[in-house]
Structure formats: C-alpha cells, structure tokens
Design a protein around this nucleic acid. Sequence first.
DNA 1: TATGAATGAGTCTTCATTCAT
DNA 2: CATGAATGAAGACTCATTCAT
Lengths: 227, 227, 227, 227
Amino acid sequence: MSTRITDTTQAKSKKRLEPRKTPVQGRSRASVEAILTAAAQVFESHGYAAGTTNRIAERAGVSVGTLYQYFPSKEAIVVALLEEHLHETTRKLHEWVGHMVSLRHGLRDALTDYVQGIMEVHQTRPRLQHILLEEAPLPPRLHDLLMAADAEAVRTMGGLLRLYPEVGHADPESAAYLVIHTVESLTHRFAAHPDERLLDGPRFVVELVSMLEAYLSCPPGSGATRG
Amino acid sequence: MSTRITDTTQAKSKKRLEPRKTPVQGRSRASVEAILTAAAQVFESHGYAAGTTNRIAERAGVSVGTLYQYFPSKEAIVVALLEEHLHETTRKLHEWVGHMVSLRHGLRDALTDYVQGIMEVHQTRPRLQHILLEEAPLPPRLHDLLMAADAEAVRTMGGLLRLYPEVGHADPESAAYLVIHTVESLTHRFAAHPDERLLDGPRFVVELVSMLEAYLSCPPGSGATRG
Amino acid sequence: MSTRITDTTQAKSKKRLEPRKTPVQGRSRASVEAILTAAAQVFESHGYAAGTTNRIAERAGVSVGTLYQYFPSKEAIVVALLEEHLHETTRKLHEWVGHMVSLRHGLRDALTDYVQGIMEVHQTRPRLQHILLEEAPLPPRLHDLLMAADAEAVRTMGGLLRLYPEVGHADPESAAYLVIHTVESLTHRFAAHPDERLLDGPRFVVELVSMLEAYLSCPPGSGATRG
Amino acid sequence: MSTRITDTTQAKSKKRLEPRKTPVQGRSRASVEAILTAAAQVFESHGYAAGTTNRIAERAGVSVGTLYQYFPSKEAIVVALLEEHLHETTRKLHEWVGHMVSLRHGLRDALTDYVQGIMEVHQTRPRLQHILLEEAPLPPRLHDLLMAADAEAVRTMGGLLRLYPEVGHADPESAAYLVIHTVESLTHRFAAHPDERLLDGPRFVVELVSMLEAYLSCPPGSGATRG
DNA sequence: TATGAATGAGTCTTCATTCAT
DNA sequence: CATGAATGAAGACTCATTCAT
C-alpha cells in the first residue's frame, strides 16, 4: 500500500490535477498512519455513513485539509483500509502455504491452521471489516482486487490440496473453491454476529474443520451410499 | 405483507400518531405495491444510500407525499422489503420440513432439497438482498427478527437431523448450526458474486450438499482416518 | 453573547458531539455576527415560521453550511437572539437598582427611570422581540431562564420598594409582582402595536408611572375613599 | 360569525373561484361547529404549527375535504376562532357597561366586575388564545378587527369613566387606554403563565383593581407630592 | 356534498470537498 | 505543507391543499 492513494472514483467532476510523483515521507507518513487508524476507529464506532471525514481528521489529530492532502476522497480511505485487510489475508494464506509445505502436517492440522489464521484476521475489528466489505460502496477496481484475491486463494488452495493424499475429492479446484468460500463466509459471519453464536470459538473451529475435512476426504456422492 | 406498514423506527419524534385503522384498498394498494417494487429496483441499481425516497417515489410513479403516506420513513420501506424475504425463507424452511417428514428421503436428497430452496430465495434479486441485509442500517427489531429466524432454523434443522440415521454427528444442534449458517452464507455469497463463480449453479449445489452430507455422516475427527 | 453558541436543544440525535474548544475568531466571528443580524432581520420581516435558515444564511451572505457551523439548529439562533434581549433587560434592571440606591430619588423618579429603561429595551426591534418571545417555540431551558429572570426582577423590585417610605402597600412582594409584570406587558404591547397607540411615548410613560405610583402609594381599598 | 368563512389570505395563487352565496345550513352547520371545536382542541394541544388541517379534520370526525368545504384555508379557521374570542370579549364589555350604567356601583366594584369578566375570557383555553393571538400569522383584516375592538373598548371605557365621580384623572380617554390595555395584557399574561404566578386568582384581581382604582382616583403627578 | 388519496413545493439539516491564509 | 472556515448540492420528511370518485 503506497502512501499516496490514487483516486479510484470515476472522477465525477474536476479533481486530481496532477498525481504527486515523489512519494511522501517523514511527517506525512505519520499523518497517513494516524488517518487510517482514526478512520478504522471512527468507522467501527459510527458506521460508514456517519464516519465523516471531519470526524476522522479530528480523531487523527489533523485537519480535514491534511486528510485530503493524502486521500483524495473518503472512498480512497476505505480503499486503503481494505487493501490492508486484503494484504493481510493474502499474507496469511502464503504464510500458511509455506508452513504446510515445510511442516507436512496431516490434512486436519493443515485445515485447522488455515481456519485459525482466517479467524484471526476476521476477529480483529469484525465490525470494521463488515463495514468496509459490505456497507461502503466500493470502486470497481477494489472489487476486482477482492475477486482476484479470492481467485488466487482458490488456486493456491487447489494446488496445496493436491499434496494431501487424504483428499479424495476428484476435482481439487472445485473443492478449493468451496473450502475458501466456506471458510471466508462462515468465519466472517461468525465474527460479525457474536450474539448469534451457539458455539464458542474453538468449538466452531473444530466443527468447521471437521466439515471441510469430511468433505475433502469423502468423494462427493459416496457419502449417501456408504451408510 | 400488509398494506399498512407499521413504523419500526424508534420514533425519533411523535410521527404517525395512530396507525390508520381501516385497511387501505384499491388505488392505495396499488401505490404501496408500486412503491415497494420501485424501492426494490432503485435500491438494486443505486444502493441503499443513493436510493433516495424521492427517487423511489418517482420510479413508482407517485409523489413523495404518497410514499410517506404509506411508509413513515425510508427505513420502513427497507423493513417491508426485508420482511418479505424473511417470510419467504421461513416459509421455505417449513415447507421443506413438511416435505422431509412426509417423504422420508435419504439425507442427501433432503439436503439437496433444502439447499435448492434457499438458493431459489437468494437468486431472486441477489443484489437487493445483499443491500437490504448488509448495507442498510436495520432497526433493532428487524435485526432481532432476523436472528430469531436463524435460531429457529437451527432448532428446526436440529430436530430434523435426529430423524436421519445417516447422521453420525454427536451433537445435532451444533451440526445444525453449522449447516444452517453454511448454507445461508455460501448461498448468499454465491448469489451475490456471480462473476466470482468457478462452478455453475447445479455443480455448486452438488458440492455444497456433499460437504454437508460428509460432515453430518462422518463423526468429527474420524474423517481423516477413514480413507 | 459568546461567539460559540451552545446547543440548548434536547439533542434529538447525537448532533455536535464536542463543542469547539478554541474560540472562533476573525472571519468566523464576522459570520456569527452576520448570521445573527440577518436572522433578526429575516424573522422581523418574515415571521418565525417563514424565517427559514436558508433565507437567513442568504441574507447573512454566507452559506447554510456556515450557518450550521455556528448554530446547531434554527432554535439555537432564536436562543442566541433571545439571550441578548434577556441579558439586556437584566442589566437594565441591575443598573437601575444601582442608580436608585445611590441616587435616592423619590418613588416617582425611580419608577420613571425604570419604565424608561424597559421601554428602551422593547423599542429596539419590537416586532422581532414579539416574534422571538411569542411566536417561536422556545426550548424549556430558555423558558425557564425567562421565568427565572422575571422572578428575580420581582424579588429585586420587592427589595427596592421597601426602601421607599412612599410605598404604602402592605405586601411589597405582591406589589412588585404587579409592577414588574405591568411594566413588562404594557411596555411590550405598546412597542409591538405602534398603530394602536392613543398616547405618544412620553405621555405613555407618564401615565404608566402614575398608575404604578398611585398603586404603590395608596393602600389597596383606601383609594376610592381618599378623594 | 357566519358559517361560510371568506378567505382573507392574499391569494398567493389560484383559489376561491366564486364565493358561496347561499348560507350553508343543517348538516353543514354541525360540521362547522365540529371543525372549530376540533381546531381549538388541536391547536391547544399541539400548537399552531403542529396543528395540521388533517389532524383537525380527524378530530372533528370529518374528512379534510369537508374541512376545506367550509374553510378555504387553515388561516380561515384561525380567523373564525379569533372572531369568536373577539365577539365574546366585546360582548363582555357591552354587558359590563350595561350593568354598570344600571347598577350604579362604586368605581371599585365596577372595575372588579370588569376585570373578572376579562379574566373569565382569558382563563378559558389560555393556551389557545395565546396561540391564536401571538403564534398564528394573522391576516391584516383580522389585525385591523382586533385593533378596532381595542379602540372601541377604549372609547366605551372612556365614556363610562366619565360617569364616575371618583375618577380624578384629567383625561378619561387616556386613562381608559391605560386601563383597557393594562387589564388585557396583565390578564393575558397571568392566564398564559400559570407557573409564574406569585398570587392566586382572587388576590391578583384585588391587586389589579387596586392599581386601576388608585390610578383613576389620584390625578397623575399628584402622587409623589402627596406623601 | 363528502371523501381521503395524492400532490409537491418547501423545510431543516448534513457532509464531502475546496481554498485562502 | 497544514489549516479549518466556508461551501452548497442533496436528502429525508411535512403538510396545506386539490380533485376524482
């Protein structure tokens, strides 16, 4: 994530005259961090619509002017925040892949590791992520990024699954698709609705992992005839 | 869905003092329908925030005044729209339970039926549902209703699972929790992001059902050792 | 009157979260003045209801946004305007008391001074005051302030009346009550309905003072038999 | 007060095409009464601005359409209501004059009678009268009527005062002006601000009468030198 | 005549964004 | 670069009034 955020808006009117070429540093970097941190807090406590740029600037201890010095629009802040989330998720995945390849865990442990990693990402500021992901209107570019990240995760997962002999699923790519999206969706939902939980965190992980493991182990269609 | 919409807002001021007693009919009924239809379209194409009451009214071919004659607030429109969705989902569940109990399908067929039912619900206007469910700020009452519906679905599913000998899971309630939320989340995501799909609808259903079936059949922890 | 206007509304929603700490200056001070002046003019010429915030802002030569930067609501403007009036009236009373105690005038001169002071207050923008006082819906706090000011005026007047040997009234507090309210009401009415006057200003003052003096001097019930 | 109320508005747009010539009767009379009664209640409990025509109609048990059948505008209702008040006050004055002339009371008793009469008028629905008189924007015609009524009251009072030998005031007309307006203002204020009262009703009347009596008895300017 | 659904101009208020200092 | 006062388009909502039935 660069310090200077490019405007992703469809340029409704006059804006950005000339993009800053020299990367901003020093004092500026600190401001950018402060603004992003403040934005995260403000969005979390006020929601997207009520998270006004003035409030964010105030919380960050800078003026609105300064905020707009670094972020050409409110949307740009959301984008920056989301990119952080994206990077973290991606990093988590790569990290996990690295571990898995070197550790040579069994499938169950591998899945547990993965689910726990994603859980960690979603459990930090669940409301914020929900706001960024669902409430805020995302520019197409970000939407594409999100999709690309998912696709890449599916590919990566697919490749990894091939390494496990326990996986009996005929089409690892499709299986990976289901695994990735199941983990993302369920984990997100679990984090976002704490009051709806029937299981606590560890139990939830166990069940989710069991489901994935059973799915990957038992070839589709074989289940019903096995009993 | 009744013609007269009750105000679910926490009544910031006095607002509509006494709800109209006589059920509105004829022309008015048509207005209400038109407004809801228009709202659905406008929300779908503009998003929640940009779906202004004036735009909705215009699209509905009525004046804002008329809109406010039937819906005390923008929120009330969202609520009306969501209640439709809620009722449909609930009805689908009950319908399904009825079928299952009488038909005495195997587990796989039962799950397939259920998943297909939920898919149908989510495939009608997926973006609208996403907006209503995630983007719009829901009044506490609706939020509670949604949660209650989920809880009831979990209980119902739990009860039903006990009827199937194929289910090897020790705790049907927990399993039901995972099943319900997995289906809801994945199905919602699948419907909401058509461009991200790797599988087509039928394949998706098959995979999802396989996962659920495998999960329910194989007791947790046993899976990895069964192959 | 401070530059920063405190919100006296019962905060229908969150509104201005934390009042600006640093006193606004320079250009802003000018805006506040302009807004108040404009509000006075607009209310005076259009009445309270038709004195819209947009009209006020326009008249003040600022945007509505600026208006709301300094006054959280239309009501706050009324409050600010009324507080000026209140302060002036109170100051006039204290000033008068000071004079009276030091000058040791006779009762008639004392009353004349007082009546003239109040007249001056009411003769500046009588229609405005009438609108603020009677037409605009006042927040409870202001209403209480107004009442408290009246009560204090009565007490002060009561104390002062005891100093005059000419006062034959048995109960100076009650007498003070009548004096204060008579002066306020009559003076207000005289100022507010210029076209209804039968007497000119000076004559009015003389008559009013005569009435008060006669009342205070002649013990109730004794008057009719004294002639 | 006629059943058919003429529109006193300055006809901002198209309105009243042809004034109804034949006086409405029967069912209509009842509706008119109901509307006026309802309007009085609604204004009293909601204030002028929140006293909507729909609310009035509802309270009256008729439709808005019917309301507009008899009153061309909201203002017309206010006018009708105020005319009632005006008539009552005028009648009270005439009645009083009649009594005074025939009874040949002393001045004090005469004044007491008068004050009590006005008190009665103001004590019925004090808030309503305040709303009608001060809060509602009155059409010029009504304003003139009000002024004319005051002027007539002053003349009448002036004529009557000449009949009382106790009256030592040189200029009965001026004295009458003060008397009329003092009674109106004070009485109105007393009725409108029940929470500000220091005296109860009877005491208030006694004091007010004393003041008037003393004023009328003691020639102006004589007081201060009398002690 | 009565009805009441429909109208839409007009209100208050918010907030992303700009720009003079 | 930083500041923060100023901007003004836009939104939710109200209510006096009309008119087809």
